[in-house]
Simulated assay, not measured.
Amino acid sequence: MRSDNTMKVLIVIPAYNEELTIGSVVALAKKYGDVLVVDDGSTDRTSEIAREVGAVVLKHETNRGKGQALKTGFEHALANDYDAVVCLDADGQHNPEEIPLLLKPIIEGEADLVIGSRYLNNAHKNIPFYRRIGLWVLNKTTVLASGVKITDSQSGFRALSRKALESLELNADGYHVESEMIHELAEKGLKIVEVPINVRYDVPKKHKKNPVSHGVGVLAKVVGLIGYKRPLLLFSILSLISFAVAGVFAYWALKPYWSGGNVFLTQAIAAGIFTLIGIQLFVAGLTLNVLARMVRE
């Protein structure tokens, strides 16, 4: 069943060992479109249950990461002439009944990427505090990378138009695919909007990975994306940090001199070294920025 009479919708659900929740997620989602479950190397009954409930299942033989699972789903959508794709997590955190909210801006031609945001209706208050801090950092770095003001860059509940699918050239394997998607579509001038969604956190197996290592890993990938796509921004930030450290050492070195004593030589040398590092970082950023522009052109 499709969400309207003209648009052909595919609901892509990447899944890894989600036998406890995949059945209910598929059952609720299939009211709004065809359902494709991309089983990313599960060792439990995820694929079997998804098929029994009515989903098409594509399975990776090994766990290749969420980014690769989504790429498989997007390729299937393009090959089978779908007009829009909705991405939905398999763990039950997202409410499939909200799928029409994400599709509406695409159906009306108002957006190419619609992100379900936990921050637009205060649903983020249910997020554990330590995760809120991590999400804030990831949101800010994604905004820096993409130049698009997004409140919930890491939300996996999102919808894409066919134009967006045809424009994507994803390289991400893991969870930083969400940030890469935003940056890539923004760079190509496609319109990105957010709609409010609700999220549940009382779901089984809600943490498959250590949240700290997971967050650091995603952050490293996003920072790398900034360095590759916007090197002047990244190197300017690093340069300012180096200059700030140089300023601290300079103050430390000169403080006794202002009181009638001698300059601390070691701290003065450190200030000079960090000043040179800051200059070199800024020059490197300028150089890489020119090269990045040449490559893109």
Rank of each mutant, 00 (worst) to 15 (best):
M7L: 15
K8H: 13
V9S: 15
V12W: 00
P14N: 09
A15R: 06
I22P: 01
L28I: 11
K30R: 06
K30C: 06
D34L: 02
D34T: 06
S42R: 08
S42W: 11
R45W: 06
A50I: 04
R51N: 10
V56I: 06
V57T: 12
L58R: 12
G65Y: 09
K66Q: 15
L70I: 08
T72C: 10
F74H: 14
A77F: 03
A79E: 15
V85S: 01
C87D: 01
A90Q: 10
G92M: 15
L101N: 11
E110A: 11
E110V: 03
L113I: 01
I115C: 00
G116D: 04
N121D: 10
I127D: 15
I127Y: 03
P128F: 10
R131M: 12
R132C: 07
G134C: 09
V137I: 05
K140A: 04
T142H: 03
T151I: 07
D152Y: 01
G156F: 02
L160H: 02
L160G: 03
K163M: 15
L165E: 13
L168H: 12
E169W: 09
L170F: 13
N171Q: 13
D173Q: 11
G174D: 08
Y175M: 10
H176G: 07
V177Y: 12
E178L: 10
I182T: 03
H183M: 11
E184Y: 01
L185M: 07
A186T: 09
A186E: 13
K188N: 13
V195R: 02
N198F: 08
K205V: 14
K208D: 15
S213I: 06
S213W: 10
S213H: 08
L219I: 02
L219Y: 10
A220G: 05
K221P: 08
G224V: 00
G224I: 01
G224Y: 00
L225P: 07
L225D: 11
L225F: 12
L234N: 07
S236E: 04
I237Y: 12
I237S: 13
S239P: 04
L240Y: 05
S242F: 02
A244L: 06
G247P: 03
A253N: 05
K255F: 15
Y257W: 14
W258H: 10
S259M: 14
S259T: 13
S259Q: 11
N262W: 14
T266K: 07
A268F: 12
I269P: 04
T275G: 03
I277C: 01
Q280P: 07
Q280V: 06
F282E: 09
A284H: 04
L288M: 00
N289L: 03
R293V: 07
R293Q: 14
V295M: 06
R296I: 05
E297Q: 10
